[in-house]
């Protein structure tokens, strides 16, 4: 539990600011425009778990111990994900979005903030079932190399299989999820044909530039961690990386409507927060 005596200490906010600055200067990971409450919770919890006495001491350790920095990175990033998370999103993709993408000779998809990859493989399965996998390429990116390593292996524990199977069915799955993986030693591994259509790479939405011109961008439950200024910058990045008529899917509690670039998008499906980039719009 958090040390209450420190809670009211205004120094904490200063120390956190300095810690984030140090992380940025030393490692280039820029958390300075993240929503503060989430980061503060994470930092205070890390403080309690370790034998470090203050956030200033944490800053020293971050600067001098890259291994500790990796721990902090994992603390800060959210790696809660599942196969076919929010099944209705995938159902809408299947019914309303993929039929549109079908008309292109090839399909480039950017999945930003892909974490350990479960939702990327979900999309790959969807593409295969709709007959599009062979002409599709998914660029799946995250800033955290540790989660990308997991994603690249395409191997997951089988403990959540039941929930995954249920999600898959709710998403309108045409077969059985088990058709797509092999199970061994309490692990499942997705068929290599999916991995072949995915390029995993490190990319930081906060500090890196536009990606490539793609037909669809999926970025779910990432924007909620950013302040408005950073959200606006990232939405511009998406705008610049999408071809006209391209599709943007964000998390169910996220939106681009507030943004200056929001006018460039209109809804395909408002409930599932799936947008299309308009062919023309006034800046």
């Amino acid at each position: 539990m958090i040390n209450y005596q420190n809670v009211r200490n205004e120094n904490i906010n200063i120390e956190i600011k300095l810690l984030l600055e140090a992380i940025y200067l030393k490692y280039g990971h820029d958390f300075r425009n993240y929503s503060p409450a989430h980061l503060k919770r994470r930092i205070l919890h890390r403080l309690m778990l370790s034998d470090i006495k203050s956030i200033s001491e944490m800053q020293y350790k971050v600067l001098h111990d890259p291994e500790f920095m990796r721990e902090i990175l994992t603390d800060f990033s959210i790696n809660v994900t599942e196969m076919f998370r929010d099944p209705l999103f995938y159902k809408t993709m299947r019914r309303e979005v993929l039929p549109v993408l079908k008309t292109y000779p090839y399909i480039k998809i950017w999945h930003a903030g892909c974490s350990t990859g479960e939702e990327v493989y979900s999309m790959a399965i969807l593409l295969e079932e709709e007959g599009l996998l062979d002409k599709s390429l998914i660029y799946a990116t995250d800033y955290n190399e540790t989660v990308l390593k997991v994603a690249k292996k395409a191997e997951y524990t089988n403990e959540n299989l039941k929930a995954y199977q249920k999600n898959y069915e709710k998403s309108g799955g045409r077969r059985k999820l088990a058709d797509y993986y092999t199970e061994k030693n309490a692990m499942i591994k997705f068929d290599p044909r999916f991995r072949k259509r995915i390029v995993f790479s490190e990319h930081n939405l906060v500090t890196d530039k536009a990606f490539a011109e793609v037909h669809m961008i999926i970025c779910r439950n990432v924007l909620i961690y950013f302040n408005r200024e950073l959200q606006n910058r990232v939405i511009k990045l998406f705008h610049d990386s999408l071809m006209k008529g391209g599709v943007l899917g964000v998390g169910s509690k996220e939106s681009v409507d507030f943004s200056r670039y929001g006018k460039a998008f209109e809804y395909i499906n408002k409930n599932q927060k799936i947008y299309i980039k308009k062919y023309s719009h006034d800046e």
Binding site: I2, Y4, V7, R8, S35, A37, H38, K40, R41, I78, V80, N221, I224, Y225, G251, K253
Partner: peptide, 27 residues
């Protein structure tokens, strides 16, 4: 703010998370 971080006390949303951050904001 909203997050999808790990469940706390097997719950998401968690009451502790709301109360904890409320204290940081409102003392």
């Amino acid at each position: 703010s909203l997050t999808v971080s790990e469940k706390v006390n097997f719950s998401r949303p968690s009451i502790d998370v709301l109360f904890e951050t409320a204290v940081l904001a409102y003392q």
